[in-house]
Design a protein around this nucleic acid. Sequence first.
DNA 1: ATGCCACAGCGTCTGTGA
Length: 259
Amino acid sequence: MKIATFNINGIKARVGALADWLDSAQPDVAMLQEIKSVDENFPRELFEERGYNVATHGQKGFNGVAILSKLPLEDVTRGLPGDDEDEQARWIEATVVGKTAIRLCGLYLPNGNPAPGPKFDYKLAWMERLQARAVDLLAAEEPAMMAGDYNVIPQPQDAASPEDWTEDALFRPDTRAAFQRIVNLGFTEAVSTRLPGPGHYTFWDYQAGAWRRNNGIRIDHILLTPQAADLMRDLGIDKEIRGYDKPSDHVPVWVDLDL
DNA sequence: ATGCCACAGCGTCTGTGA
């Protein structure tokens, strides 16, 4: 089962590029971030006509996450637990059942800039809530994954120019430590496990010729519980689509699990 | 030190992103 995560940076602007990618990559599941759409305006038909079931958790203007799946989406829940006041649409969960079941969590972690400041505080608080959910997922001792745009550069080797990011919310010590704490609970960070070493970027800014100069960063991650990691057959980053027409600034990351 | 570029929204500018 091929399961992908992709920050599409706006469904309205990405209808063509997203359809092209689905048709060529043929993921069984795609977790999408930054749909920038309310649920009513999400073009479900585009995906349903390709055989996907669709679950969305959108909001007006920005944020918003969704899951597309060729298998039925069961027990869908929306919103990251731990703060009833939080209205930002950044988290969606569903279960799909292949040979065995897997719990899928799609996430769009807050950017956090400028740091320090209230947005950075929100990011760190959100990561604490993420850690609490992660603890529960591990305790279940079942296949599960948390995939999405983490807005975290884990290590200096995950940026082409790490010196440009030292003060940035994506790379500050507090951010990296919070991410490492979650991984260290017992997850497999799939990309760095399968593709060790520098240069495996998932985001290139639209500005200043970042793609042309390969000035990228690795911020889209897949975390697997041990029971899911045991099923991993393959993993990839579809970086070539960053050079196609009307691209997102992120590219898809996918994992093939024996499910 | 700033803007570079892109997207959505009631929109010819502002907020947001990374």
